[in-house]
Design a protein around this nucleic acid. Structure first.
Lengths: 224, 224
DNA sequence: AACTTTGCCTAACACTGTTACAAAATGTAA
DNA sequence: TTACATTTTGTAACAGTGTTAGGCAAAGTT
């Protein structure tokens, strides 16, 4: 029954060419403006053929989402395997994460929804100046008198914002999943928040009151 | 010349009703499915009237983007003003940031492009398990033998991922701005990365080789 | 050769953002 | 009040989008 084999092979070829073309479109024109019709034109098939391979447009994007996480995961594993010590592994994985994101911008943006028009304008918002000022003020006031020379409050501000935004967006993405309304491993995301804040403060000021000394505010905060 | 005043007043009213309706649509149906035509229907004007107040659809979204940052900035300033010490100010601002994001999900998603369909599916990606495993492995191996009881590697993993993702996405958003291809305050984003990684490691393991001891890998990394 | 199944395309539906142009309402001047 | 000018508004179109129903033709089966 080589006929069915050939048919399957042809179907797979079409599927692959859909994904190839889609990726090419995403890379060249950005994932904003990629359409079923453009793919159909490029692969020289009619539009409904695409729907016989993928349920809808999102299913195609989801395919790249999946592959992106596979690639990222592999990149981290590779970085880790090259390092003997756990601490250097962490450092290597952090760098690998960064490198993956900027060497595969299209994947990363697809994975986390970056690149939307409103995003582009964020850096030109005037209120950002207040935002930065408010935070940097406290950072500057917190650094002990005899601090080492290479202390850069702007750098610390960026760290702080990054940590907060990462925390929020990762928790916001997984909202709406039915099984994950309860904390997946027995702790609330707010505990991660406290942990992150605590790490940040400890990184600037050596001695700081730990949140464990004030558990009411650390754990029993209103749950959204 | 009260006539011109009245005209201006009426124009402002229309503009306000456009924004009101747009926001209502965003809150009820999500910002994905909000359209010029729906606004026009709701305010009982024809479509081109909207284009006489806003250049295009993105300009309306940008308006909320701006307002969102103003609100966030104000919330942080409020949180800060209630605290005497710098460290507690940082903590309060961190919590205020979190609270703002989840009490104003629509604003936050609009500001940072969350809520796109592919985002929703992230938590169901199988490769995420490998991803988490790889990182948690190193975290577990790094924690010193006599660690305090409340050490949760899953929590640390979430902190780590959040920091990295926040760092990447904030740097990715401001890319393409012509004046910001050079570092805005004399340091590369990679330095922030090293700072964040270093803080994280120090938060787990007290003694860790600082990146300053190995500046070649910390600063002179290939620039994208 | 007749029948069935499969694969494929045309054409439509219901939307979207955006804009050219004509009509209506409003203002000003005679 | 009438005639003209200006502003304001709506209609209708253009060029897209995702998605799907229905029919035609080719391929496989009996």
């Amino acid at each position: 029954m080589g006929i069915l084999d050939r048919k399957q092979r042809q179907k797979d070829e079409v599927r692959a060419s859909i994904l190839d073309t889609a990726w090419q479109l995403i890379v060249t024109e950005g994932w904003q403006s990629f359409s079923i019709r453009k793919i159909a034109d490029a692969i020289e098939y009619s539009v409904p053929v695409i729907y016989s391979h993928f349920e809808n447009k999102d299913a195609i994007l989801l395919e790249f989402n999946r592959k992106g996480f596979q690639l990222l995961s592999a990149a981290l594993a590779r970085a880790k395997s090259g390092e003997p010590e756990p601490a250097s592994q962490i450092r290597a994985m952090g760098r690998a994460y960064w490198d993956f994101a900027f060497e595969n911008k299209e994947y990363y943006q697809l994975m986390f929804g970056l690149g939307i028009p409103t995003c582009e304008a964020v850096s030109r918002i005037p209120a950002l100046a207040n935002f930065a000022e408010t935070i940097i003020g406290s950072i500057n006031a917190m650094v002990p008198a005899g601090q080492q020379p290479p202390f850069d409050p702007w750098l610390k501000y960026q760290s702080f914002w990054s940590m907060l935004h990462g925390l929020v967006s990762i928790n916001m993405i997984r909202i709406g999943q039915p099984e994950q309304t309860e904390p997946p491993h027995g702790h609330l995301p707010q505990q991660v928040l406290e942990d992150v804040i605590c790490s940040f403060i400890r990184g600037i000021q050596a001695t700081v009151p730990t949140p464990a000394a004030d558990p009411s505010s650390a754990i029993n905060r209103p749950d959204n």
